[in-house]
């Protein structure tokens, strides 16, 4: 606690420096915006349902794009594999079984409106509980180990991998993605030199696609992050794969890069299932962010053809 009337620099018991600012006074008249209550149970119920739904339903926008791409595929085997992917999605949806046995890391993006007040529990635990219930009741595979070296399965797919942002408004938006390990393992990040420019970015992305080959389960969505610092760059790449398939980036530089990269990725010859062909990716999505004068970070997050994510707003 700050002693009354004191401003300036003091030291607390832990010997860390504490800076006291003059007391903030609200402008008069004080306008208070009422908070909107959201119960933790609603969050748990929503996450649970999203987990089950997404694993049984490959994203519609992805399937529509895949269907459109079948005729573009030059390889007979490639076209057959694309039809099998569509058939697989249909079976999963109709029978209520996971489209892919790897029901993934559960990645949860939460946008919390700053006028939204969570009651009856804490946000993270409410999300983990939703994952726990969804993966158990939905008969989804539990793929998370508690420590990367000890490797003991947590047996309920928790923890969820949560990214929280505070945004304007009084709503809470939850996006849940099942991110398969095979494609995630083929993701890459590099801190390029600014002089390497757009050509350096393209070379890095193409190298990642070629190295991934069949391992990332093509046709893929290639999520690319450019800029930011190390961790923002990686998150940009992951958020990029959530965008509706083929919707161009709002920034014209990014949109141009997306079109050029998609063409180049589809010239690598990797093809559906990696058996050779002309449809390696259905889209390249680029997200960018300001960066440092000395840096050009680039990250590639691979999204396999079992593209599964769902969102809800409370």
């Amino acid at each position: 606690m700050k002693p009354n009337g004191i401003e300036g620099v003091c030291y607390n018991v832990a010997r860390t420096k504490v800076i006291f600012l003059p007391e903030f006074r609200f402008p008069e008249p004080l306008s208070r915006i009422p908070m909107r209550d959201i119960h933790a149970q609603q969050i748990t119920d929503t996450v649970k349902q999203l987990c089950i739904d997404m694993c049984y339903h490959v994203s519609d926008d992805f399937l529509a794009a895949l269907e459109r791409a079948v005729e573009r595929e030059e390889s007979d085997t490639g076209r057959e594999i694309m039809r099998q992917i569509l058939e697989n999605a249909k079976i999963a949806k109709e029978e209520g079984i996971p489209a892919c046995q790897d029901t993934g890391y559960t990645v949860v993006f939460v946008d919390v409106g700053q006028e939204c007040h969570i009651v009856g529990g804490d946000l993270s635990e409410a999300i983990h509980e939703g994952v726990r219930q969804g993966y158990t009741e939905g008969l989804l595979r539990k793929s998370i180990v508690a420590h990367p070296l000890d490797r003991v399965n947590t047996r309920d797919n928790t923890p969820a991998f949560i990214h929280t942002r505070i945004v304007p408004g009084d709503r809470l938006k939850i996006t849940v993605a099942a991110k398969g390990g095979g494609s995630e393992n083929m993701s890459r990040l590099s801190m390029l030199k600014p002089s390497q420019g757009v050509e350096g970015v393209k070379e890095f992305v193409l190298q990642a696609v070629k190295e991934a080959g069949p391992n990332a389960c093509p046709p893929v969505i290639v999520g690319v992050g450019i800029g930011g610092d190390f961790e923002i760059c990686a998150e940009l790449a992951k958020r990029a794969i959530l965008r509706p398939v083929g919707e161009p980036a709002p920034n014209p530089t990014d949109a141009k890069l997306e079109a050029e990269l998609l063409d180049q990725v589809n010239r690598t010859g990797v093809g559906p299932g990696g058996f050779g062909g002309s449809v390696t990716a259905l889209a390249v999505h680029v997200e960018s962010f300001p960066t440092h004068i000395v840096s050009l970070p680039v990250a590639v997050n691979m999204q396999c053809h079992s593209t599964r994510h769902k969102e809800a707003e409370l």
Binding site: I97, P98, Q101, D102, T103, L139, R141, N215
Partner: peptide, 22 residues
């Protein structure tokens, strides 16, 4: 190389595609 998802009641097995061999 497969790690299937749990079987539904009455089903033989859950989803059962291949995993990365490397």
């Amino acid at each position: 190389y497969v790690g299937p998802s749990p079987a539904k009641p009455g089903a033989v097995i859950g989803a059962a595609g291949p995993t990365t061999s490397g």
